[in-house]
Amino acid sequence: MKRMILMAALVAGPALAQDDMVFDDSIVGQCVQAAADAGAAEACIGKAADDCMTRNPGGESTYGMNFCIGQEAAVWDGLLNAEYQRVMASDKEIDAQTKADGYGAPELAPALKAMQRAWIAYRDTTCTYEASQWGGGTGAGPAYAGCMMRLTAMQTLYLRDTGPF
């Protein structure tokens, strides 16, 4: 029985810790909204993860960092998706108008799609490169997660600055 309890505790440990950890998913959105320009918005990157690492016991352990950074990365990923859809919808409208007007301008929507596809490969290889610099060390996990969060946020802010406003 004692052994079973011990085993159960070992198995449940990380799951419990994750359930207990608090992440405020309103920080990123509020910070970006309040930012006056792209430079100020860049300062929002990492704020929610920092808050999570500070307010949770064990938040600064490798496990805690992975959790907190992963949570913030997920928030940015949602924002990025929304920005991409917004710009894509606008690009398609402009392309249709350009075609109707008879201009021979290169289309915007396929260029945006190609860029986003190239960005995904760029993001993954950048973060693999950054993680590789930790060798096999425990820092590689948080380094990869932090890189994904940073690049996803940067791409969100780049698309956010792309018209229409």
């Binding site: 690009d91 402009i94 350009t98 201009y103 021979g104 301008a105 290169p106 289309e107 915007l108 260029a111 945006l112 190609a114 860029m115 596809r117 190239a118 960005w119 490969a121 760029y122 993954d124 290889t125 950048t126 693999t128 490169y129």
Partner: peptide, 23 residues
């Protein structure tokens, strides 16, 4: 792998800069 992917991404991103300007 990173440098090659960056090069592709740069060119794709800069194509966006010219798209819509018209021939």
């Amino acid at each position: 792998a990173f440098h090659a992917a960056w090069l592709t991404y740069r060119d794709a991103k800069c194509d966006v800069a010219i798209a819509g300007f018209g021939l």
